[in-house]
């Protein structure tokens, strides 16, 4: 139980940070596709008897980068969908070769955070640190390129390069989070809290901190509720994220109705 709190908190921090850019770049679909598709890597790894983390890492990275490369020449949402289903198709194939697949699939897709063991804690923390450092280093470039792509290009920041780096960060975040919390949880955390934060405050740095705080709030609430009711954590994470988003939208609507400047555009412009 203590492990669950620790791991979930680490995951929430990473989701809050990476999710901020996910929302800013309008990449919700990618944030869904990469973790979800990477489950095929775990299925393949368990089939071959190698490390799950390795399988997840390879699949999420290859998946994310192929989305980036194919997205250059096609519609990004369409190629994201195609990359996702191809990975999932492979996952289905791998699963069909193993015998005890049902429980495995379930925990990979929906997470079993309450069953996290101590030896999973250290690699998760290490990858999380790597992820946060990567975002910190790339922060300003990614900010400019996400908001004003052309200006970024003019200043020598390749939009394609930033896209690939962003996708790599999402892949890294997926690799560390999927084995411990499942694909569903990380996706909900990367969308709900950052979206709510963006509606509540206008300064980008504030929005990022708030999104981390809200992500932490979400997982803590979810774990406590799950512990109390014995319903899955994923259910509560999804519900709390949606509720946070609704609150954020409501607040933004109330404020713009009151005649004040909209926060969302200000966050993008700063």
């Amino acid at each position: 139980m203590v492990n669950a709190w620790e791991v979930a908190s680490i995951v929430a921090v990473v989701a809050g940070v990476v999710g901020f850019f996910t929302v800013l770049r309008g990449s919700a679909f990618v944030a869904h596709a990469v973790p979800n598709g990477s489950f095929a890597g775990a299925a393949g790894a368990s089939l071959l008897g190698i490390s799950t983390l390795f399988g997840l890492g390879v699949f999420s990275l290859v998946g994310a980068l192929s989305i980036g490369v194919m997205g250059r020449r096609g519609r990004r949402d369409a190629v994201t969908a195609l990359a996702l289903v191809t990975m999932l198709g492979l996952g289905g194939l791998f699963l069909s070769f193993t015998t005890q697949y049902a429980a495995e699939t379930y925990s990979l897709l929906f997470g079993e955070v309450l069953g996290v063991s101590t030896n999973e804690l250290i690699p998760t923390a290490a990858l999380a640190a790597l992820c946060v450092v990567a975002v910190a280093v790339l922060y300003r470039r990614m900010m400019l390129s996400s908001v004003l792509t052309e200006v970024g290009e003019a200043r020598g920041i390749s939009a394609f390069g930033v896209e690939l780096l962003f996708l790599a960060v999402v892949a890294l975040a997926s690799t560390m989070t999927v084995p411990v919390v499942g694909t569903l949880l990380i996706f909900s955390l990367m969308i709900g809290p950052p979206a709510a934060a963006r509606s509540l405050v206008s300064r980008p740095a504030q929005a990022m901190w708030l999104s981390v705080a809200l992500a932490l709030l979400t997982v803590w609430t979810a774990i406590a509720a799950s512990y109390a009711t014995n319903y899955p954590v994923g259910f509560f994470v999804g519900t709390v994220s949606a509720a946070l988003y609704a609150v954020g939208r409501g607040f933004a609507g109330w404020r713009s109705g009151g005649g004040l400047v909209s926060a969302t555009t200000a966050a993008a412009g700063a």
């Binding site: 309008g26 709900g192 899955p232 259910f235 999804g238 519900t239």
Partner: peptide
């Protein structure tokens, strides 16, 4: 971009429900 988010929220909530039903 807003539509992308709205879709994501519905998706997250739906998957949460799926997790509940599966369990």
């Amino acid at each position: 971009r807003g539509r992308d988010l709205a879709t994501g929220i519905v998706l997250g909530a739906g998957l949460g429900l799926a997790a509940l039903f599966f369990s």
